[in-house]
Amino acid sequence: MLEVKDLNVFYGGIHALKGITFSVREGQVVTLIGANGAGKSTTLRAISGLVKPRSGEITFMGQNLLQVPAHKIVSLGVSHVPEGRRIFANLTVLENLEMGAYTRKDKNLDEDLKRVFKRFPRLEERRRQVGGTLSGGEQQMLAIGRALMLKPKLLVMDEPSMGLAPLLVREIFSIIKEINEQGTTILLVEQNAHMALSIADYAYVLETGRIVTEGPAEELAKSESIRKAYLGH
């Protein structure tokens, strides 16, 4: 579904991605794990068109994404839940969700709002509350719900566990798994390798801009070197 080939991204003189290649198959949860600064967010930004790669290829369902501006990539069915959530702090929960469906031609959102509220009942209770007053976990739910309003084919998530208590992290990850089971392909970027490997089908390990290991998530979770470097045991 998504193919990334030999991708190189620079920030000025900083070579952030040094030729990474990976793919996401339809129906899977694929995770990119790696330490802080490895280049995970940069990879996702390149996919969403928010940074321009110097070289390489990104194809989504046969279409070359490098030719498509950021705001059009969304309408192809790629939804990005950005790092740090980036919800609209001064808009209400409902307005945030409506913004999520911004590119949709049909403006019949009631059914999708119902679907999102069913998955996140806490958002429904707070639908008139402004985003900035939600707790961290609720903001993450809102960010995911907002991305789901587009009915994406591919949901791209940047560190959904960031800054959340362990219990909430578990809740968010089981929701991610559920979303996947209902048919949405997921590309998940995480520092929390343990949680990411527990729900992913396939995993890539990113180190300072290069992919150093890849394999089925279950195998990586058992591998000695991965456990030492990323799982802390």
Partner: peptide, 18 residues
């Protein structure tokens, strides 16, 4: 609404397709 979203967070607005 799109303008408001840009004011709130330009990057997030772009990732919504604005």
């Amino acid at each position: 609404r799109a303008c408001l979203a840009v004011r709130e967070d330009e990057v997030a607005a772009e990732s919504m397709g604005v």
